[in-house]
């Protein structure tokens, strides 16, 4: 999983509000609020960053250890996928 490059769906709207992301998925008629960490991860789901790179950036930004960072990224990506917010999750 570390070499995959997760990509958020291009047809959802997202806004940063005081450091937290609000994501509107009109297709699903759902609106999501992401906490600061999830917002950071979401912002890097651009189809270019690998999971490992995102985890490294989380560790750098939040001062967490590598294992905890990877765990946080994996959990967030799993949740994004469950919610159908990632491109590859819709295949």
């Amino acid at each position: 999983m570390g070499s995959e490059c997760p990509k958020r769906r291009s047809d959802v709207s997202a806004r940063v509000v005081e450091g937290e992301m609000v994501v509107l998925d009109r297709d699903a008629s759902l609106v999501h609020q992401l906490n600061v960490t999830a917002s950071f991860i979401w912002d890097r789901c651009d189809g270019r960053c690998t999971v490992s790179e995102i985890a490294e950036q989380v560790a750098g930004a939040f001062g967490t250890n590598p294992d905890a960072s990877k765990e946080a990224v994996t959990a967030a990506l799993r949740r994004f996928a469950e919610l159908g917010l990632l491109e590859h999750a819709r295949d």
Binding site: R15, V17, E18, E20, V22, L24, V31, Q33
Partner: peptide
Amino acid sequence: ISAAEAAARLYA
């Protein structure tokens, strides 16, 4: 609640 949470709830 944070503005983001409020915005999401309000939007709904």
